[in-house]
Design a protein around this nucleic acid. Structure first.
Lengths: 154, 154
DNA sequence: ATAATATTGTTGTAAATGCAACATATTTTT
DNA sequence: AAAAATATGTTGCATTTACAACAATATTAT
């Protein structure tokens, strides 16, 4: 029996990458159209900070899976726009830069959330919520496996 | 009843992006470790060309979801390495650059496939094949919807 | 027929990203 | 105690990527 050759476009890798890339493009176009004041990366950071008050930069980088350099730069712009504040503190006896969302940042986050909510629901509702939950669970379990295997260097 | 607020790290967007990013990192590390002569993008292009002989650049770009500029540059390096040949032809009365895989490219593709097969199986087998098929089908259907909504400009 | 529009590919430039090196401070090892 | 290793953040540079402008040709509209 001949062995089935798996080609790139049939692989789960392709499907994940292209779906993810398209969602990112759609998000970017939406942010542009709605004239939102920050980028999607900044939004992701801001939202994550809002539910992790006092998190340090490296821990945030781990959640966002961005390197420390990149994360620091995103935080620079969020700070410069007045949406977060940063302060020196210690974690395990080490100096770290912690951060929190400002009142202005919180207002902006809510403003953005209200603006985009309807649009994103419109997109994800192409697939039943129950199905999404299953997919999300599979992906999450798989991602946790991947995190064990990949040298992230964050 | 209070409305559940969905945060970025709970979203399907986050899960897709991070899983995809981790797979990409893992792939890159594997290509490095195995000292494979081309990048993952070049590999994806080469594999796609191998099953779409005579495809033109723009159609390839659409499959890979890369812009024309980027696709052209990837093809430059594949051509320069002798893995593909390019030739002018017409499609709908228009001049296009078509391409095909060379004997050398075909050998290299098979060589790479044999090298990486075991490793990738090791990764994806963390999830049962049946589950992958379901996930892949959901993602593919969703991706096709996304393609309708996103302005790709390819 | 002329002008406007569309298709395909390339080039140039700006932005994003990744990566290595550095700076500082702390912990662990010898 | 001195040296090596670790943790955290920043800086600089090279690579990637995105995007807009262009060139050449073909089609469509006026």
């Amino acid at each position: 029996m001949a062995e089935k050759i798996e080609h790139y476009t049939d692989s789960i890798h392709y499907e994940l990458e292209q779906t993810s890339r398209l969602m990112k493009m759609l998000g970017k176009q939406l942010f542009d159209k709605l004239e939102i004041s920050i980028t999607m990366d900044e939004y992701a950071a801001l939202d994550t900070i809002s539910i992790n008050a006092g998190i340090c930069q490296r821990d945030l980088a781990k959640i966002l899976i961005k390197d420390r350099a990149n994360t620091g730069r995103i935080l620079d712009t969020l700070e410069q726009k007045g949406f977060i504040t940063r302060f020196i503190d210690t974690k395990n006896n080490r100096l770290v830069k912690k951060m929190g969302i400002t009142e202005k940042g919180y207002k902006e986050l809510n403003f953005i959330n209200n603006k985009i909510k309807h649009y994103f629901e419109n997109v994800t509702h192409k697939v039943p919520e129950e199905t999404w939950n299953k997919v999300q669970n599979v992906l999450k379990a798989f991602r946790l496996e991947l995190e064990q295997m990949v040298e992230t260097n964050i």
